[in-house]
Computed example of a mutant assay.
Amino acid sequence: MMRHLFALCALAAVGALACAAGVSAKPQTIHPGELWPDDRGNHVQAHGGGILKQGKTYYWFGEYRSRDNDPNLRYVGCYSSQDLVHWKFHEPALKLADPENLGERWVLERPKVFYNARTKMYIMYFHLDSGNYSLARVGIATSKKADRDYKYLKSFRPLGQISRDIGQFVDDDGSAYLIFEDRPNGFHIARLSDDYLTVERDVCLIPMHMEGGAVVHYQGLYYAIGSALTGWNPNPNKYATATSLAGPWSEFKDIAPPEANTYGAQSTMMLKVVGPKATTVIFMGDLWKPKTQWDSRYLWMPVEIGDGKLTLPSPHDWTLDVKTGEAEIVSATPPAAPAAPSP
């Protein structure tokens, strides 16, 4: 009898540790458009963000827009998870005062973090701007640790071009790219230098005026998505395909019914989860609330992708198993979505 009790206690302890680490033996449910609590019960503040995977741990970086932020600082939030559902809060990875005398309403947006295996450094890119968006540069901060201690390094215009919204892409061969919106010319996909501290060369300039850019490589094709230039207001996000990042790219098509305006969301990244049973591509989007930015939500959904087609299903609860790569939509009716943003 005592052996059985010890065995049950051991199993319970293992289960508790697994829960504490954000690991579960069964698929976990994601609720698009709802409050997304972290391990403290607070809504995740990682807007306009990106995901970095290190080993079995995913790090989610994004704009930390808490109500009690110091108005003189800008913050980059950082959370970690092993199942992409349960997120552990870390202190903001970056707390930055105005780095270049940009003025009271200066901007830090869309942070993305790359890991450089050669230098063993974490490099954070973000859109850095003045309040009237006239600077249009990328800023860089670096750290030796994934989740903290980022220090501001510099800002510049990549390839001498305007840069507003940025995205990140790491190809299957490990090469790293910055995606940036250059309003006079279009949508750049540019390769980073070996140390990731600058942009080495333009791989492709797609002559489309799009922001919220993201790229994924799936079954031999590259898929690029982005949104139109409508500020906070949602619009029909579109996608194109190519066999090479350099193009040529196909015409852009809607990822969802155009009247749905991408279900109120704007793209920020496409995340590929590869497992032994399936490969799932997740559309990561922001449901912006400009007047209550701390309450802005997230729309994460598995896309239907393949043979040159990409479709974003309407928001429903869905499960994800990061160990097998499998995703499944589980709810019969969509969850309540937040009100559409106003200018």
Rank of each mutant, 00 (worst) to 15 (best):
V14D: 01
L287M: 14
M208I: 10
D171F: 01
E34T: 10
V138F: 02
G62F: 03
E34Y: 07
E91W: 05
R74K: 13
S227P: 00
I30M: 10
A141Y: 02
T324I: 07
N72C: 10
P184C: 05
G77I: 14
A13I: 12
L128G: 01
T279W: 05
P37Q: 02
H4A: 08
L271A: 12
S155T: 14
P236S: 13
A256T: 01
D68G: 03
R201A: 05
G231T: 04
E100R: 01
M124L: 02
F6K: 10
V273P: 03
L312F: 07
K309S: 11
Y59R: 06
L178Y: 05
E104T: 14
L197M: 14
Y177L: 03
H43G: 08
W60S: 01
L94T: 00
P37W: 01
L299R: 03
V281G: 03
P207T: 09
R67Q: 13
G220L: 10
P184N: 05
G213E: 15
K53V: 07
S244K: 13
E259V: 11
T311C: 07
D173V: 03
M270K: 04
Y115A: 06
P315W: 12
V199H: 10
W294F: 13
E326I: 13
S244I: 07
G167P: 01
D172M: 05
L17D: 12
A117G: 07
P32V: 00
V303R: 11
S296G: 09
G174Q: 11
I225F: 09
P341G: 08
P99V: 03
H188A: 07
Y133L: 13
A242D: 05
V216S: 09
